[in-house]
Design a protein around this nucleic acid. Structure first.
Lengths: 219, 219
DNA sequence: GCAAAAGTGTTAGGAGTACACCCATGC
DNA sequence: GCATGGGTGTACTCCTAACACTTTTGC
């Protein structure tokens, strides 16, 4: 590869995050309003161009921080988008990630150097977005549904443990379907990913529910 | 993003394929010997730098063709490798794919503009490779194992159909474990991905085996 | 007729699904 | 005491895994 060959010039990498949360039983995604061209004033996913001197996930976390004020969002690779004309400015390949945050623990910045607004949108109510970000969200949703049972991606929602009714609500919200209470308990307990604690806590009912927590990696 | 900012200059995208085949019951991977720096004379996966004016998979297929003479290899996304120092020349992010080819139907070029050799290596016998290609293979192997049951990625091995003993050999070879004949048949037939044909054919035994084929997408 | 591989069936355990009743608590 | 949600068990089906015998055919 000849570094000065025009065939390779002006390529860049977008690192993009579909950041989800759940607020009052509704799955939401974090969007920002762009302040600059291209797609000025258009809503978009959080993300931007990777620097030369940072690893992919570090770049993504920097972008998330710069555009929303959020720090240390845990992210997982979702997919790659590389159509040659997906950016009107120059050739950009997008690496897309999924992130989950606890809405009670974060405060997003509405106005930054490059964004004029930031807001949570219900997943059923996403507007037309910059670039191919609508496609990216679609793919991220699919991956999210696949990974909730097999990974501990939901851990961030429950830093202090959770009751099974709570967890079930989150599942129902992400999968967008009702689940049977008894079968849900069996399934979750069978994955061997969670353990019972001593505590109890009221959730929606009057009766107190048992609190569980995700196992640590070592357990 | 300011296009002339040094933070974004000299970035590129590697498109890389772990091309597998099965030869005499052994899983093999296609490697090429590099003719140029960096990693001159080192073995490496097939792939190279993406051009500005081509989609990701088109670029990958071009690289495969240039370096091995193979055309139209069907590929699937595997993962992404983006450590900042993974290339000594400039910042390169690698998009890695899995490809399968039928060794009876291809002839690879041993010598091209950029390669001085190309050869199939048993998966247990892969040498030290250029860049982070050893890591990329490891990941591709994991993805390959996950996808053989749920996708028709093995179709290319059997353009004219296959017998179940044949297919089982391929599974055993990729998963690196022995499978029970009766349970294998049940499992495969249950996936509803294959259909019985009228023909029969001898494989390893004297008795002729029934020939199946993968369903078309429309079936 | 025998060696070598192809083909088949049964049983037991585990997971998924559907479904109904009692328990604890706040009001 | 009753409404609300939390907690539990059972029966059926389906998938998985373990396991042994018969069939075909080339030699």
């Amino acid at each position: 590869m000849e570094i000065h060959n025009m065939k390779y010039k002006n390529q860049g990498i977008h690192v993009i995050a579909s950041i989800f949360t759940i607020e009052k039983g509704v799955l939401k995604i974090l969007l920002i309003k762009r302040k600059n061209e291209p797609f000025k004033n258009c809503w978009a996913l959080v993300g931007g161009a990777l620097y030369n001197d940072e690893d992919l996930e570090d770049g993504l976390n920097r972008e998330i921080y710069e555009k929303t004020g959020l720090k240390n969002v845990e992210v997982r690779l979702s997919s790659v988008f590389g159509k040659k004309d997906r950016s009107p400015v120059m050739r950009m390949v997008a690496i897309s990630y999924i992130g989950m945050v606890n809405i009670n623990e974060v405060k997003i910045l509405k106005d930054t150097l490059k964004t004029s607004n930031a807001a949570w949108f219900s997943i059923d109510d996403v507007p037309f977005l910059a670039y191919d970000h609508n496609d990216i969200i679609k793919d991220a949703m699919k991956k999210l549904k696949e990974s909730i049972l097999t990974t501990d991606i939901l851990k961030v929602f429950f830093p202090d443990g959770f009751t099974l009714p709570e967890l079930q609500k989150v599942y129902e919200c992400i999968l967008d379907e009702k689940l049977d209470r008894r079968n849900f308990r069996k399934k979750i307990l069978n994955t061997n990913q969670i353990v019972l604690t001593e505590e109890k806590q009221a959730f929606e009912g009057k009766k107190k529910a048992k609190i569980y927590r995700f196992k640590e990696e070592s357990e």
